[in-house]
Design a protein around this nucleic acid. Structure first.
Length: 706
DNA sequence: TTAGGGTTAG
């Protein structure tokens, strides 16, 4: 109907539409200006017009876009015109018509105009319309607040709501959901609390819409306890209430509780819909229970929802995170035009599971298709690049980011800092770090991690103190980064001191922190001190803690403590080959051959074999990976000749290899294990024969993905 | 006329 008005332009070709469809439906009178008479309306049109002549429809030419038609219908006529608007030009035209009509002060139509403009992303226009209206009612205020909330302009939404209150307009049940969305979007916890008070005062404590919004608000602001209280007090819980609290728990890192609530939901009479299932899938993804997630997948198939595009995103993410990237990819491939979030889920799934090249390739494909990318796409792609380990690719990625609106995005820059460090150039990390404005604890921590990775422990510690001076509080990640950095640089005292600083910030050390300290003490030879340190731990030591102790025992030939650590490890992680090999090496060093043989028999009985890592080097932009004892490269002979040559020169220079444990009759693999740097050496040798003297060689070590 | 929940993430 609305379109037919604008089709008047085409009247010479479609006069029947005008006369048969348009005019009979709206009681309007048409006055056609003389300039348009060339359209040669058929006589029937004028007859219709005369028949329905309660209000005037003026048609006159406009200079801007061909012919513009001013008309005056009734309010529902304008509403239907606006309702069908999908572009700014249409809205402009209808607004222009409205302005010259007697309905220009009609609050209902102005509200509709504001709603429609903000729906099509014409938010500043909506505000202009809003501002021109002198006496907005609650509907109009709601429409404007809704517009801002919808476009993530949370501050404006909150300002407007405050102004509304100052003007003495009473909010209604449609006001609060939008205001609360703005509060959670901008993490305005205090303001939201006040809104909660107002909800109570205005008597909306039983409105399920308003209360659901409150649950979501508290959950998104990290106040899951408050969210639960609101949820528990709800007189009538809808599926939205349940979904809000379930996803709230997942968002707050409590997926187990989310699943408990979900089982309660199963016992209630509320019908479960697909959005509820999406949040449950997320919870199973987070508890890393792929089997249970598969069961939910089964439910979805039963409900006939498995092809729901938004569910495919959750399924893709779940399978990708669970390491089943092929299954994830099959979901991705199901859609002809996967949306942005699905691309993101797939790219990050690849990147997080060691399929770095696939991640980068998919990102490139996305670009080739001219798809829109966002901050999350970039973060995932950067993670992929970091794991590929190529500095060339890293620079390309950095350039790419520089051409987007995300070059100042703090999350993206954190990822870039990490990427450069992992690709071998921490000074580039520092450049990104220096140009990042508004550094938060993650940015600082990423830089500390970078320096630590490169054995520049002092710089890591310096940066930490600068961070403190800048008034940014460290978190558990910061301390882990610091302890790791001290570890790599052998800064025992500094590490010990920093570990004890954790309590100043009320950060409870986790197993990772403890294992770092054990490693630090152990490597420096304080094996017994490390052992006592573990014995005094307030939490149950994990395998990584005992593993660090075992490693220290191997280095410092401590059989008794080594056996103790190994016993703990065998019970915690019975199938990990590394611990058996390490204990066997401890025995070998102590020349306790009978025990070496015993360990080997146990390993054989369990059918354990080694999981190899590899090292990679980039030559002329091409990445080459080497496994331990890798002879598959076409230039393998030259590489091993260079390696021998290198070892000869090392010996001449006075290098004494640590060979005690290789002297006895260990089998081939065990010898390879003992020469733990072997694959790095191959990569170095390849680098030396492939580059001009003086060229910087960057070796990337990739663990456990053979 | 207007409204609430989910999925990708340093």
């Amino acid at each position: 109907m609305a379109l037919s008005l604008f089709l008047i332009k085409e009247i010479p070709y479609s006069s029947s539409i005008l006369s048969s469809l348009f005019f009979p439906l709206f009681k309007v009178q048409v006055i056609i200006s003389r300039t348009l008479t060339s359209f040669k309306f058929p006589a029937s049109v004028f007859t219709s017009v005369k028949q329905y002549s309660s209000s005037p429809l003026v048609i006159s030419p406009s200079s801007d876009h061909g012919s513009l038609f001013y008309c005056c219908g009734d309010a529902s006529f304008y509403a239907s015109l606006l309702g069908s608007s999908t572009d700014k030009k249409h809205v402009d035209q209808v607004h222009a018509q409205l302005l010259v009509s007697s309905l220009r002060h009609n609050g209902f139509l102005i509200t509709k105009l504001v709603n429609v403009s903000s729906d099509i992303g014409y938010i500043c226009y909506a505000r202009k319309v809003f501002d021109k209206f002198s006496d907005p009612d609650v509907f109009l205020w709601n429409a404007m607040v809704r517009g801002y909330s919808k476009h993530n302009m949370f501050g404006d939404a909150i300002d407007l709501y405050s102004r509304m209150q100052a003007m003495g307009v009473s909010p209604d049940c449609f006001t609060f959901p939008n205001v609360l969305k703005a509060c959670s979007g901008s993490q305005a916890l205090e303001f939201g609390r006040r809104v909660h008070g107002q909800i109570f005062r205005h008597g909306f404590e039983c409105d399920v819409f308003v209360q659901n919004s409150l649950v979501a608000f508290y959950a998104k602001c990290g106040r899951i306890g408050r969210a639960r209280t609101v949820f528990d007090r709800l007189c009538d819980r809808s599926i939205v209430s349940w979904t809000s609290i379930i996803s709230g728990y997942t968002q707050n890192g409590e997926p187990m509780e989310a699943l408990r609530v979900f089982s309660q939901l199963g016992r209630s009479n509320v019908k479960i819909d697909w959005i509820a299932l999406v949040s449950v899938l997320r919870a199973y993804t987070d508890v890393e229970d792929l089997e249970q997630g598969k069961a939910i997948h089964g439910c979805l198939i039963k409900l006939g929802l498995e092809h729901e595009p938004d569910l495919l995103i959750s399924l893709t993410a779940m399978y990708a995170k669970g390491g089943q990237v092929m299954v994830a990819r099959s979901f991705f491939n199901q859609l002809e035009e996967p949306g942005l979030i699905l691309w993101n889920a797939m790219i990050s799934g690849y990147a997080k599971n060691g399929y770095a090249e696939e991640a980068v390739e998919l990102f490139r494909k996305m670009n080739a298709k001219n798809m829109r990318t966002d901050s999350i796409t970039l973060r995932s792609a950067i993670l992929g690049v970091a794991q590929v380990g190529s500095l060339e690719l890293a620079k390309w990625m950095d350039d790419y980011v520089g051409r987007t609106e995300y070059k100042t995005d703090i999350f993206v820059n954190t990822a870039l800092i990490d990427m450069y460090a992992k690709c071998g150039d921490v000074d580039f990390s520092r450049e990104v770090f220096d140009r990042t404005a508004g550094k938060d604890v993650f940015v600082w921590s990423a830089m500390i991690v970078g320096y630590g990775l490169h054995g520049r422990g002092r710089e890591a510690i310096d940066i930490y103190y600068t961070m403190e001076q800048a008034g940014v509080s460290p978190n558990d990640v910061t301390f882990l980064a610091l302890l790791t950095a001290c570890n790599h640089s052998g800064l025992v005292e500094e590490g010990w001191k920093l570990f004890h600083c954790m309590k100043d910030y009320a950060i409870k050390p986790q197993n990772q922190h403890y294992s770092c300290v054990v490693d630090l003490l152990g490597r420096a030879g304080y094996v017994e001190k490390a052992y006592r340190f573990i014995k005094n731990m307030p939490i149950e030591p994990s395998a990584s803690v005992w593993g660090a102790l075992l490693n220290a025992c191997k280095i410092h030939r401590h059989v008794t403590i080594g056996e103790y650590a190994a016993e703990k490890l065998f019970s915690l992680d019975p199938n990990n080959t590394g611990y058996y090999v390490q204990l066997s090496n401890i025995y070998a060093t102590a020349r306790m051959w009978d025990r070496v043989a015993k360990i080997r028999a146990v390993m054989k009985g369990k059918g354990l074999s080694k999981d190899l890592g590899y090292s990679a080097i980039e030559i002329n932009g091409e990445l080459q990976g080497f496994h331990v004892g890798d002879k598959s490269h076409p230039r393998s002979r030259e590489i091993f000749e260079e390696l021998e040559n290198l070892e000869k020169r090392l010996k001449e220079a006075g290098f004494v290899p640590h060979t005690e444990s290789v002297l006895h009759d260990l089998n081939y693999e065990e010898k390879e294990e003992t020469l733990c740097n072997h694959n790095e050496r191959i990569a170095i040798a390849y680098g030396l024969i492939s580059t001009a003297p003086g060229t910087m060689l960057r070796i990337t070590k990739i663990l456990g993905h053979a």
